[in-house]
Design a protein around this nucleic acid. Structure first.
Lengths: 356, 356
DNA sequence: CCCACTTAGTAACGCGCGTTACCAGCGCTG
DNA sequence: CAGCGCTGGTAACGCGCGTTACTAAGTGGG
């Protein structure tokens, strides 16, 4: 037993790939036997003795199966492809992380390819089609398509050749299953938190372009207020660009519009960057957070939310979970199982920090 | 067991892969001819006519080469593997982006696998070795190993079986080529910028743990001062944790230590998160940026630097370039070319915004 | 003693493709 | 007319492996 069984130190010697044949010869059996043992076949009858002899040979030679050859013979690759602009514009990286982790658990590989949908006339136009083509050449068994922000997309037709699941986006005209955040639920939970803290005059800093995130979050806010017998005062809803500057401007407008006593005591910012700007507007006026004004954000952008002072209470986008769920859904699809729903909503949990 | 289980719902248009044989039959030639045409062999003699007939057949049948089979036959996969904790703790995502882009240019595929080196006793212990093993099973032709922050690492031995390049880290005991940011140059450029703006009393907010980033950046700052005939006043160097809170505390200490006239007029924060905290300390004291105090950061964390108010002038870590350079170096290595240098330093460019 | 059945394995084919060796026909030269 | 080189291909092998069909040696029962 005390041989150089560790593949690490002996391996550098053996550049020439060692194959099953080598293992078979070394163990004095046929290649078939080796294959049977390595793939743990149920109904193969191999004596315990030769079985260990084969396993020993594997270790001694540092044999490593050739995934490509295996795929060719077995007609399955165990690969999923994920094509996403996240590669080109990292923002929702955690989608990849979630997908990767789940794929790893399922003993599958994730092939990550870039997309260009985000830029209408970027330099990489056409990159996406090429990327999908490449993925298909690798014979991926399923495709994940992920966007950096929740929106409708046009999925290239070539994606139809293989089961496909959308993450953080939805198919404008097709019938592809998709996984998106529950924006509305998130908006509701945010406002509920403010209500629970005793706030009734709540200002909303709204996102300017009409995107699913803005619409959903605002609707959720309305729901929460309605449930408390309140109504969203249109005067307290101010829109701005989805940046810190936009948030600053919007917050200024909303804060300066009223005398102190009528001023909203809480601000629901539809994303963290705007909350960042709102912080400045509030502090600039000598007001404290959350003492004078409570602030709640959305997105949970770690670098902002966790590092603002005070740390920002916010609603998290469940990127990781969405990625994982994407892989799970794909696994179900490729296994021929029925899908749970055409569009799966993933909850956006509240992250308590110190701004409420 | 029937193997023709139709996957998905509507996905299976053309599940039955069309092979070269099909193309050959359809074009009335031999499979060899098809292979020759598709691989654009120089010395193959195929008439122009049959050449187009074959190409037509390819289009009509929607033939797509099987990358796996091709790899098996040609003994090359065109794959590189990148194993990195960036997957588990996204921070330097742009390394992946840079590598991916470059790989794409080189018509190569990047297989991304997770690492766990960052957490000493994390839940995924051993994940890294398994990941590398998987990559080798896929017969990657080279390995990239990337870290989230500049540091020494212990590279698993199995990585020795294939050319390996380190990105944003270096091999503690071995001789692997590595690509790291020029921290010192970055520190120099930052302080030079401050000097150029007329500041001579410069405070430094230093990173607490002794890591290459801190050491290098500080050394660079000293160099710049020395070149201007100045010296770094130890009293003006304050250390803190690499967080916004740490930056806030450090800035408070440095600002409150002196009467206004002796106060430093500029702060070099060794990272952007600390700069974020410093902003708060400065604003809290009724001082303006850059009017009363100029601030310069390091790292260029977009979400912070571009969204602080005023936007933060900072030194960027060249993650993308490092990723690209990693792939290029790997390409040279696998091609048998000599490496430029054992350790390649990549410049950290100054990003002018509005805080100086 | 023969037959059926189990155990322990092996030979051989094919996955889709790259590649090498070969071949048939044709025009041209000596 | 033999011989040669050139054009335009083709047959066949092997890459490393999964898988099916088959065999040879024991085992037990009637």
């Amino acid at each position: 037993m005390a041989k150089s069984t560790t593949p690490g130190n002996t391996a550098a010697v053996r550049q020439r790939g060692v194959t099953m044949k080598d293992v078979a010869d070394h163990a004095g059996v046929s290649r078939t036997a080796v294959s049977f043992v390595l793939s743990n076949r149920e109904n193969a009858s191999i004596s315990e003795e030769t079985r260990t002899r084969i396993n020993d040979a594997v270790l001694e030679l540092g044999y490593r199966p050739n995934a490509g050859a295996r795929a060719l013979a077995s007609q399955r690759t165990d690969w999923y492809g994920i094509v996403t602009e996240i590669v080109t514009a990292p923002f929702a990286v955690d989608i990849i992380k979630g997908a990767q982790d789940q794929a790893w658990l399922d003993r599958r590989f994730l092939l990550i390819a870039p997309s260009d949908q985000a830029d209408a006339v970027g330099p990489n136009q056409g990159l996406e089609d090429a990327a999908i083509e490449k993925l298909l050449e690798q014979r991926v068994e399923g495709l994940l398509y992920a966007a950096t922000f929740h929106r409708g997309v046009r999925v290239p037709v070539s994606a139809n050749e293989v089961p496909t699941v959308l993450i953080n986006c939805f198919d404008a005209d097709g019938k592809l299953p998709s996984i998106v955040p529950d924006e509305r639920g998130g908006g509701r939970v945010a406002v509920e938190r403010l209500l629970q803290a005793g706030h009734t005059r709540i200002g909303v800093i709204n996102l300017d372009p009409v995107i699913p995130a803005a619409v959903g979050r605002l609707a959720g806010a309305r729901e929460a207020l309605a449930a408390a017998g309140l109504e969203l005062n249109p005067e307290l809803v101010v829109s701005g660009y989805a940046t810190a500057d936009g948030g600053y401007d919007a917050a200024c407008r909303i804060l300066d519009r009223y005398p102190p006593k009528d001023r909203p005591t809480a601000l629901f910012c539809l994303n963290d960057r705007m909350a960042m700007g709102a912080y400045d507007a509030i502090k600039e006026r000598g007001l404290t957070i959350p003492g004078d004004i409570a602030v709640i954000g959305f997105d949970n952008q770690e670098l902002i939310a966790a590092y603002l002072r005070p740390k920002l209470t916010t609603v998290a986008l469940p990127f990781e979970k969405m990625g994982a769920l994407g892989v799970q859904t794909l696994a179900a699809l490729t296994a021929g199982q029925p899908i749970i729903a055409d569009q799966q909503l993933v909850g956006c949990p509240l992250l308590e920090r110190s701004s409420v």
